[in-house]
Amino acid sequence: MLTTQFLLTSLIVVVMPGTGVLYTLSNGMARGGRAGIAAALGCTLGILPHLLASALGLSAIMHVSATVFSVVKYGGSAYLLFLAWQMWKETGALAIGHESTESSLVKVALRGVALNILNPKLTIFFLAFLPQFITPGVLSATRQLVGLSAVFMLMTLVVFCLYALLAGGARKALSAMPRSIRWIQRSFAVVFAGLAVELAFTRR
């Protein structure tokens, strides 16, 4: 059931800095607002499999099976390290002031999708989060779950796009200082490497 409590809780969850927020900000600052919005779209779409898993009960299997959880966890950790390396490597070749090409925007979006798909904590989170707001006897649990999920994803997309636009604005302000952009990008690379290590040692 859509309630004020659900909306406020969801907003807090979405606004809190996480891998999706950091990925959106890093692309917005490095490549501009369009790339940031592409990252926001990709991260939002990457939530969908976790919501479907919660609806189908697959998240419960992941919660019970240490093997399944570990496979996704280490895959996500390795992918975060890959993104960290890409960010670090690309800092010296950024064309400040040039718009991203359509193909690069697609790549940014697809990386965002993969980033969230390979985050096992999202599936466990939705297993614990969404059922709290299901009201028995009003509608079927599945219909309520789908509706709440759609609202959560829409909220995620809007907030992430705002982050992207803010990052794009900051990029324009820093366009005269390419060295600053380079070190900001490298800072994001270090943060992603740290998140990869943290995820690798995460316990359910």
Rank of each mutant, 00 (worst) to 15 (best):
M1C: 06
L2P: 01
T4P: 02
F6D: 08
L7T: 09
V15M: 14
M16V: 15
T24D: 13
N27A: 10
N27G: 09
M29A: 14
M29C: 12
A30N: 12
R31K: 14
G36K: 00
A39F: 07
A39T: 11
L41S: 07
G42T: 00
G42L: 00
G46C: 09
P49N: 00
L52D: 00
A53I: 08
L58N: 08
L58V: 10
A60I: 06
M62I: 15
M62D: 04
M62R: 11
H63R: 10
V64F: 02
V68E: 03
S70M: 06
K73L: 12
G76S: 10
A78K: 05
L81M: 13
F82I: 13
A93C: 04
L94I: 15
A95V: 07
I96L: 15
E99D: 15
S100M: 11
L105I: 01
V108K: 00
A109L: 08
A109F: 06
R111P: 03
V113Y: 03
L115S: 05
N116A: 10
L118S: 10
P120H: 15
F129V: 01
L130V: 11
F133G: 10
F133W: 03
P136T: 09
L139S: 12
A141F: 04
R143I: 10
Q144T: 04
L145F: 11
G147L: 08
S149G: 07
A150D: 04
M155P: 00
L157D: 00
L157W: 03
V159A: 05
F160M: 14
L162F: 10
L165A: 13
A167D: 01
A167K: 00
G168Y: 14
L174Q: 12
A176E: 00
M177S: 14
M177L: 13
R179Q: 13
S180Y: 14
W183R: 09
Q185R: 15
R186I: 01
S187P: 02
F188S: 11
V191R: 01
G194L: 12
E198L: 11
L199I: 11
A200Q: 10
A200Y: 11
A200H: 07
F201I: 02
